[in-house]
Nucleic acid binder design. Structure first.
Length: 262
DNA sequence: TGTGAGCGC
C-alpha cells in the first residue's frame, strides 16, 4: 500500500510544458502501471438502482467499432465527453487520466490552460470510448473523493463544446442552503431534496476555488415554484449528512423565475 | 457565519 509517487501533488514546482491532450501510449494496453483505487461506494441511502425495462445492462455492450466514417455526432446521444471542474493547479492531464484509467474506458484527458502562462484554468474534459461509458463514470465518480486530496469530483456532461444541449424547460427557482457539513456533495444535496420534490433540477455546493474546500453552503434549483416554496419551510432544519440545513431564499443574480420584484 | 458560476482553438 504505497502511494504512487506520481500521484502526489508537488509541494511547489513549476508546471512542465504539457501537451494539450494526454492519452495512453497504447490504447489496448492490458493494465497500466499506475492504478487508482475505485471510488468509495459509501452506500448512501439516496443511491437508487439502475432502471430496468428498456435499457440493456451497461456491460460489455459492444457497439459498432466506430473506425473512421462513423465519427459524426448527430445527436446529444453521441456525447462521450465529460466536463470536470474545480481542478487544482497541479492536476495535469495524466492525473485526470489516472483517475479514470482503471475503468479502461477513458480515451483522453485534457486540462484547459492559459495560453500565455500555461496555468490551468481550473477545468478540463475527459473523453470516453462511448456515451454509456461516460455516463457510467459520471455516475460512479461524481461527488466522490479525488485521489490524494480532500476534494470531490465535480463532473458534468460537456455540453457547450458539442453543439446545442437540450434546452431546459422553463424557469428555475433556487433556494439557498446553509449550515452544510463538509462531506455534503452536489449529488447528496440534490438527492436529499429530490426524494421529496420531483421538480428538483440540480444542486450546487459552493467551494473555494483555491482549495476546493466547501464553503458550507449551496443552492438547490427547482422547476416548480410551489415546490420551492414548500421546500423552504418543510426542509428547513432537516438533516443532510450530519447537520441540519438552514434554508433561505436565494439572491439570484441571474434570471430567476419570478421571485424578484421591482 | 454564508448568496456560485463552469465548456476546449
Amino acid at each position: 500500500m504505497q502511494p504512487a509517487s506520481s500521484m502526489v501533488p508537488p509541494p511547489m514546482a513549476a508546471a512542465p510544458q504539457y501537451q494539450q491532450q494526454w492519452m495512453p501510449q497504447q490504447p489496448q494496453q492490458a493494465q497500466p502501471a499506475y492504478q487508482v483505487p475505485p471510488p468509495q461506494q459509501s452506500g448512501y441511502y439516496y443511491q437508487q438502482p439502475p432502471p430496468q425495462g428498456g435499457a440493456p445492462p451497461p456491460q460489455q455492450q459492444q457497439q459498432s467499432q466506430c473506425t473512421a466514417s462513423a465519427a459524426q455526432p448527430t445527436s446529444a446521444d453521441e456525447i462521450r465527453t465529460l466536463w470536470i471542474g474545480d481542478l487544482q493547479f497541479w492536476m495535469d492531464e495524466q492525473y485526470l487520466y489516472n483517475c479514470f484509467a482503471q475503468t479502461g474506458e477513458v480515451v483522453s484527458a485534457k486540462v484547459i490552460r492559459n495560453k500565455q502562462t500555461q496555468q490551468s484554468e481550473g477545468y478540463g474534459f475527459i473523453e470516453f470510448n462511448s456515451h454509456a461509458a461516460a455516463e457510467r463514470n459520471l455516475q460512479a465518480y461524481n461527488g466522490t473523493l479525488m485521489p490524494n486530496i480532500e476534494q470531490n469530483f465535480r463532473l458534468n456532461w460537456a455540453s457547450l463544446g458539442s453543439g446545442e444541449k437540450r434546452s431546459d424547460n422553463g424557469p428555475e427557482y433556487t433556494i439557498f442552503v446553509g449550515d452544510l457539513a463538509a462531506d455534503v456533495t452536489d449529488y447528496m444535496l440534490q438527492e436529499t431534496f429530490r426524494a421529496n420534490y420531483s421538480s428538483v433540477k440540480g444542486a450546487k455546493i459552493v467551494t473555494d476555488r483555491a482549495t476546493g474546500h466547501t464553503k458550507g453552503y449551496g443552492f438547490v434549483r427547482f422547476g416548480d415554484e410551489s415546490e420551492q416554496l414548500r421546500a423552504m419551510t418543510e426542509m428547513n432544519g432537516k438533516f443532510c449528512s450530519t447537520r441540519p440545513m438552514r434554508i433561505g431564499p436565494a439572491a439570484n443574480k441571474k434570471s430567476a423565475g419570478g421571485q424578484m420584484q421591482g
